[in-house]
Design a protein around this nucleic acid. Structure first.
Lengths: 122, 122
DNA sequence: CCGAATCCTTTCCGATACTG
DNA sequence: CAGTATCGGAAAGGATTCGG
């Protein structure tokens, strides 16, 4: 982000408008382990609804980050996998995920303190 | 994310529920250059509304990522700055920003192709 | 200059029911 | 198993106005 112009800012903004939601980065981080079926993703991310999983995967496929492979068997089987572009996102996303794991407690503590400090004057 | 249990997944989810929005990561990346006043942030991120800038900064302050310093002059002056915790988020976020800059074109191309392939059957 | 408050529209998203 | 379709409440977010 040390551009003289604001190209970096606009590019980052544009990307965040797409994958800066509650699920996209998480799904990328889960698929970083390797290809997964639809139902496996559901199991690994219990808090997501079927609808949002479908929509998010569709968006990632549209961005070229994830590939979708249908095996027309009975029962049907659909595998999702990071594309080459998705693979290149692996490192930054996993770095972010590790930061999250390392700091979730600090964040939660800070939130509690902030809420207490501001809740008193109600 | 190579945990046997799903602690990593849950922690990442929790963090993304907070900073996984359209603006938080962007603001962190802008503040990575150094402290900024409110109006400077507005200038650097033209597409954000005053309201969302205020709300997002409040959220980041609550998380302990950003500190807010009021200088009671006339006109008033308010500076925002990354805390130590915010500084630790700098590296992962800048890595993501750089990825965004490097790949925004590829993503856009992929989106256009996807939309054309799916728009035909309307 | 910074931001709180209100209003109002748009979008998100979970629940549910239904298909191949 | 892996979706799609539809609905309704919730939340996001822009525009505007007012205040210290």
């Amino acid at each position: 982000m040390h551009d003289p112009d604001s190209f970096g800012c606009r590019a980052f903004t544009a990307v965040l408008q797409r994958i800066g939601d509650k699920w996209s980065l998480l799904i990328v981080s889960v698929l970083a382990d390797g290809p997964k079926r639809f139902s496996e993703l559901r199991r690994e991310i219990p808090s997501i609804s079927q609808r949002m999983l479908t929509l998010t995967l569709r968006g990632l496929e549209r961005d070229g980050l994830v590939s979708r492979t249908v095996t027309p068997s009975i029962p049907p089987r659909v595998d999702y996998e990071l594309t080459q572009l998705g693979q290149s996102l692996r490192k930054p996303v996993c770095a972010l995920a590790e930061w999250a794991m390392a700091n979730i407690d600090v964040i939660h503590t800070s939130q509690t303190r902030f809420d207490r400090a501001n809740g008193e004057k109600v």
